[in-house]
Design a protein around this nucleic acid. Structure first.
Lengths: 253, 253
DNA sequence: CGCGTCAACTTGTAAGGACAAGCATGACAA
DNA sequence: TTGTCATGCTTGTCCTTACAAGTTGACGCG
């Protein structure tokens, strides 16, 4: 019931009530919350007020609405963790790149669509790859899926003088993936630098990753360096924050 | 102007129009967008419709509303990056913990408030620390500020049998911080495991970090292990995604 | 018994009105 | 000149009403 004397807006009180029920477990993941009409009657407020309350919970990512069906408690993070210690040479010899390795560990079926094209380096890419602006780069644009649903977008850029006449310019890079081909071409990988940030999904990403509104994404930029300290590849990865968790292991010294 | 024949809801058309103006730069960061009344008149829609459009942009984190003043375009990310390779023994000997080190590198003034208390381990903590549920743990609850504004929340938990009679149970842990005291007590640190995820801020975090609505946070869980493979500390860190970027360096092999 | 249709739900979109509360500005008084 | 206050602008909150569009299940007909 809404307390008008408290000074707290009615829609926030309704939202808080539902949030409590969800976090307490009275409304478990997947459960349908009462309809807008029912909530309005129960709390003695109007439907727009109830809708505002539900809009809050949607923005928090707690619930999803489905027209004609109801509003449902969001199921928990699909604990599809991604161990990033998979970039080792040994792993490359076992399977085909990190994504397939994660899939095997997580027990889901991976699929990928790839587009390969060429462009001249924009300022940001040029800085990261340490090449002149306008240098020709090979772009590998990938959409990765787990059991058919898109979970990750990745765009790799490499200087064309490295990729020319290699399988990297093919859609299928072959066993071990892109990094294996780099090592075939005598570019010995030394280390990677990953930069992790989070932000709200753009509407393009929302569409591509089939995200409900109000979900954040993890944006990861990985730069691969060879033993000479030269940057070989810049990979911009976007993941639904809902579905991913990144794990890093760091030595104490 | 709204096109009723397009099938696209009016509030989305209004939102798209404003979004374009913002991304194009016509409405630069800090600028005030037209008032709800003006937008309603201009697009020939009602005020509630305009409000719904603005609610969308707020959820996307593009604008912030200030009652009595107007709605303003959000200013850009403050590129305060945080290199996470600072957990080395050498760094501990130089300064006092990772946060002060980051501050020195970033050129801002750090300040911290600490609360220390004891509790019995909840299931999640017990699992991570590999102790029995209910074991007494020492909790260090910290709010970290950069130039006075809160940027990070961190809660460390350690089994009490490790912290008893050490400076870890004091608010001020002394030079080199918590990890230096652990090594003083013959617990040699071996490695850390960091788990990174992103999600929308809870309303508690929103208040503590003074975040506008609709901003995501980066949630990081760090577990410190000693050379025997024993978990010494679990640190749950929450950062505004606006203000942080994490950098990891990984060896290729 | 099977299947299609329809009614009764659900959420989505939109209008219009009313009052509250915070802020800035300018007029006015000291 | 300076401080105070009233006024009008802004967003915040909330109501009532109406119709659109998607889903589900029950009912009746073949």
């Amino acid at each position: 019931m809404v307390d008008h004397a408290s000074g707290i807006p009615a829609y926030r009180q309704v939202a808080a009530d539902l949030r409590d029920q969800i976090t307490r477990g009275d409304l478990p993941p997947g459960a349908r919350i009462p309809s807008e009409h029912q909530l309005a009657e129960r709390h003695h407020v109007s439907r727009p007020t109830v809708r505002e309350a539900i809009a809050l919970l949607r923005a928090e990512g707690l619930v999803v609405a489905e027209r004609g069906r109801g509003v449902f408690v969001r199921s928990q993070r699909t604990v599809q963790r991604l161990a990033r210690n998979r970039l080792s040479r040994a792993a490359r010899q076992r399977d085909e790149g990190a994504f397939k390795g994660d899939a095997a560990a997580g027990g889901w079926t991976p699929s990928t669509t790839v587009k390969v094209y060429f462009e001249s380096a924009d300022p940001a890419t040029a800085t990261l790859l340490d090449v002149d602006e306008g240098t020709e780069v090979c772009v590998r644009d990938r959409v990765m899926r787990a059991d058919g649903i898109p979970v990750q977008l990745a765009t790799s850029r490499l200087p064309r003088d490295i990729t020319r006449d290699t399988a990297i310019e093919q859609t299928d890079t072959g066993p071990g993936g892109l990094y294996a081909r780099l090592e075939d071409a005598e570019h010995t990988l030394d280390h990677f630098v990953e930069t992790v940030s989070a932000r709200m999904a753009t509407h393009v990403e929302q569409a591509a990753l089939q995200l409900p509104e109000g979900t954040p994404v993890i944006a990861l930029t990985r730069v691969a360096y060879d033993t000479d300290g030269r940057a070989l590849e810049v990979n911009a990865i976007t993941m639904s924050a809902d579905r991913y968790e990144l794990v890093y292991e760091l030595p104490a010294d």
